[in-house]
Nucleic acid binder design. Structure first.
Length: 805
RNA sequence: GCGAGCGUGGCGAAAUUGGCAGACGCGCCGGACUUAGGAUCCGGUGGGUAACCGUGCAGGUUCAAGUCCUGUCGCUCGCACCA
């Protein structure tokens, strides 16, 4: 069979007959793969693994009566295209369009049943118009705000660069040391949804690992806030607030630490300490950029010269600035309990601070620092309480005193959506001297990205230099005003795209409410695990926001999530251009056909594990198809007949049953193995004396349906050759006849003292007592027991008998 | 450092979830058909002559452990001073 030829033929046939066209109604099943970024590197085998195998799942669901919706589009904004433009001068839009054309051709060659009429590109104005609309909804509802935040800035390239472009603190392109720069940026208030994002995880059919990662990322921690009054209040401040999970240790506080970036640093620093503190803060700013992650185990810090008051006992404690306290978590200040925290202990030792024990183990003293829960001591009226009781009691007391109380903290921070970049959706905001920050009215969307801009880096983004773009009029007062020149993070574009597919060309709204509520949530979402705390979290957030605003009936976008494993290069390393170990699917498809590639990707790996690519396996799958074709050659001209051979009929139904369970569980490797077993049985049958070609043809006809989701073109071709008229994908999947799996006899393994000694054949379906009785009557078993009296006999129905002597 | 996951033949991997370890395939060995085969078909293939031994290593629970528990080593991923 010329696979290239027949694959082309069937793709054209499907197209012509509208086999892949989605019609609304019925028992919908929305299958979605994470949409690709159109890079110049084209599709690699990893995309195939993701899209090709998920398509097999989708085809299976379709043959099982589901009305499957499986769309595809392109996540087309982003940094690589812009960097490419800086390097080559080729406009991002042009290179992106070209890449999309190539990738779309490759995707079509895969033979996936995408309904292309729902396709979109996130970089097209008719899509990003609605990304901007989304921004405005968040803005209007208080979920979007501006604040100053640090960005990475390369002084040589004169541009802001992304975190992933910073390698060892240096710019990946020019190796210049990157500096931190404070800039005003837009944020989405994802932290408002922290608790719901956490709670919602429980009901999702997602990999536990991914849920755990999101839980850790959200980082809920239940504790309390303590207010330390300043010894000398000023006009600017009168107290330091700290967050703690160990309120039971409050009476052991011997100092308080604030982060170098804390607003109170200048307020609390006394003139005598000014020089030392300023020097420390400057050094910390540098360190946090370059080596914060690896080394700074050393607990450094300097005294501000000021003191604050422990609200519980009125004790005066010194305030330090130290970089082991993070400005980004909690209140940016912590209480120092040297006796019960390893970091505080190290800091106190180094700075000669007092160490006061207030918790002891339930028995004895134990060494310091003692960081576990125990019993309160040296704590006056709290003495004797357990840590658990003490936490509650202390926080209650603080509340009475008006100096704190219970508080829950989340590690997650708000989502920064500003990018000082050209190739993204412009943020729809206008700055007016008279009216201030003004959102672009919805009727004026989209704010179009100008094509004609200059990419040479000179300290401003290309958008900021485009006078035509920047200069506008204020929508309120009509006077000259300037546009925001930052663009949106591409994760904003991809945070709502699954809502666009059902109604991809709607120019009145981002989606039709009825249609979206009918088709969503996504029933099965498949993509890489690396998006656990990015895209997958943002999408959940946006869905919840749109739900709360009344646009959606559901508040979780993806019911079931599956991660495909990573296909590594033949050398066992992640595929990369620099390693030169990238496997391109194109030559493989040209040589063996896309079905052979698909089968191999299924057969060679555990889907969620992935693994190194190997060339050898692909031939085995091509050979497997040849074996099936050879049977087809034998039976093409006979009339099919279902007069059964018991042994082969058993194999056939066993295969149907197993494959039907494997495919929805993404167990493709075993599904293919079961089909191979059936083909082996067919060969055995064909070689036997009792072989009936009409029956063999019947079995082949069923196999072709069973395998249709796994090798769609090939199976369609065989089906046609066997006399089938309609497309297999408009037919039902074979159903296992359980009666055919009932056999008269079962072979039991007989164990003596837990070791298999022999086998006995007994009728199927016996009660345990009868199994035991018959087994003990067996001559071989009798001999093995040799007259000894069994102490205990365990019978596992249809499996084994264990006789303990 | 913390958290999660993994470790099974020469290789990719299976194992009804505590019940005959190694399905299926690659590779290898042998046979058939052949002028020939790197095509195809059939058979064999964890180790050991054997009793037996075998799922990283050491223990434990159990009639029974790849599967559960404890410890340990190694690898991968995620988070990295989170108070």
């Amino acid at each position: 069979m010329d696979h290239i030829e027949i694959e082309k033929k069937w793709r054209e046939r499907w197209e012509k007959d509208g086999v892949n066209t989605f019609h609304e109604g019925g028992d919908k099943h929305y299958v979605l793969e994470m949409l690709p970024y159109p890079s110049g590197a084209k599709l690699h085998v990893g995309h195939w693994y993701n899209y090709g195998l998920t398509d097999s799942y989708a085809r299976f669901m379709r043959m099982n009566g589901k009305n499957v919706f499986q769309p595809m589009g392109f996540d087309a904004f982003g940094l690589p295209a812009e960097n490419y433009a800086i390097k080559t001068g080729i406009h991002p839009k042009d290179s992106t369009d070209a890449n999309i054309a190539t990738m779309e051709r490759q995707l079509r060659d895969m033979g996936i049943m995408f309904d292309w009429s729902h396709e979109f590109y996130t970089c097209a104005p008719d899509y990003y118009k609605w990304t901007q609309w989304l921004f405005l909804q968040l803005y209007k509802n208080g979920l979007c705000y501006q604040k100053k935040a640090p960005v990475n800035y390369c002084p040589s390239c004169q541009t802001v660069i992304a975190n992933e472009q910073v390698v060892d603190g240096k710019c990946e392109r020019c190796k210049t040391e990157v500096v931190r720069k404070e800039m005003t940026q837009w944020f989405f208030k994802i932290t408002d949804y922290a608790e719901r994002l956490l709670q919602g995880l429980d009901g999702l059919d997602w990999p536990e690992k991914t849920k755990t990662m999101q839980r850790n990322w959200i980082g809920k921690s239940v504790g309390g806030e303590v207010v330390f009054d300043l010894e000398k209040p000023t006009a600017d401040a009168n107290a330091i607030r700290v967050f703690t999970t160990r309120a039971d240790t409050l009476l052991g506080v011997t100092y308080v630490v604030i982060a170098p970036e804390h607003a109170l640093v200048p307020v609390l620093t006394v003139p005598k300490q000014k020089k030392a503190v300023e020097k420390y803060v400057a050094e910390a700013a540098k360190r946090s950029e370059i080596e914060r992650t690896s080394t700074s185990k050393d607990k450094t810090g300097v005294f501000t010269g000021s003191y604050c008051i422990n609200p519980l006992n009125g004790k005066k404690v010194p305030v330090f600035v130290a970089d082991y306290c993070l400005s980004t978590y909690g209140t940016g200040a912590v209480m120092g309990v040297a006796a019960h925290d390893t970091r505080d202990y190290a800091f106190a030792k180094k700075n000669g601070l007092e160490i006061v024990r207030v918790i002891r183990p339930a028995d004895g003293e134990g060494e310091l620092p003692f960081t576990e829960y125990g019993v309160m001591t040296n704590s006056g009226k709290f003495d004797g309480l357990t840590s658990e009781e003490g936490k509650a009691a202390v926080l209650e007391e603080l509340e009475k005193l008006g100096h704190g109380g219970k508080k829950t903290n989340y590690r997650m921070r708000d989502w920064s959506v500003s990018r000082q970049r050209y190739w993204g959706a412009p943020i729809p905001v206008i700055y007016c001297e008279h009216c201030g920050t003004v959102p672009v009215p919805e009727k004026d969307l989209p704010v179009e990205l100008p094509y004609d801009v200059n990419f040479t880096p000179d300290g401003k983004s290309p958008l900021a230099r485009s006078e035509k773009f920047v200069n506008t009029v204020c929508p309120i007062c009509g006077k000259p005003a300037r546009r925001e020149t930052d663009t949106l993070d591409t994760f904003v574009c991809s945070s709502w795209y699954y809502l666009r597919y059902p109604d991809a060309h709607n120019d009145k709204a981002p989606f039709d409410k009825k249609r979206v509520n009918a088709l969503l949530p996504v029933d099965c979402y498949v993509g890489g695990a690396e998006h656990a705390c990015g895209h997958l979290l943002y999408s959940r957030f946006i869905t919840k926001v749109l739900h709360d605003l009344g646009y959606l009936d559901f508040d979780e976008p993806f019911k079931r999530l599956v991660h495909q494993g990573v296909i590594l290069g033949p050398d066992g390393y992640r595929m990369s251009k620099s390693r030169g170990n990238v496997i391109s699917p194109d030559p493989i498809v040209q040589k063996y056909g896309s079905d052979a590639l698909r089968l191999y990707m299924m057969f060679g790996f555990d889907y969620t594990e992935g693994g190194p690519w190997s060339d050898g396996g692909i031939q085995s799958c091509a050979r497997f198809m040849d074996r099936i074709e050879r049977i087809a050659d034998d039976v093409t001209n006979v009339k099919a007949d279902a007069t059964a051979d018991d042994a082969l009929d058993y194999e056939l139904n066993y295969c149907i049953k197993q494959v039907s369970a494997d495919i929805p569980a993404f167990g493709f490797n075993t599904a293919v193995a079961r089909c191979m077993e059936l083909v082996n049985a067919m060969y055995k049958y064909r070689a036997g004396k009792e072989c009936s070609l009409p029956y063999l043809k019947h079995v082949l006809g069923v196999l072709v349906k069973v395998m249709a989701p796994l090798a769609p073109h090939f199976c369609e071709e065989l089906n046609e050759r066997l006399g089938g008229k309609a497309s297999l994908f408009d037919q039902s999947y074979p159903v296992c006849d359980e009666r055919k799996l009932v056999r008269a006899e079962t072979e039991y393994a007989v164990q003596i003292n837990s070791r298999v000694k022999c086998k006995v054949v007994l009728p199927q379906g016996l009660a345990a007592a009868d199994v035991q009785k018959l087994a003990l009557e067996n001559a071989e078993v009798k001999e093995l027991i040799g007259g000894a009296t069994p102490k205990k006999i365990i019978v596992i129905p249809e499996r084994l008998i264990n006789i303990v002597l």
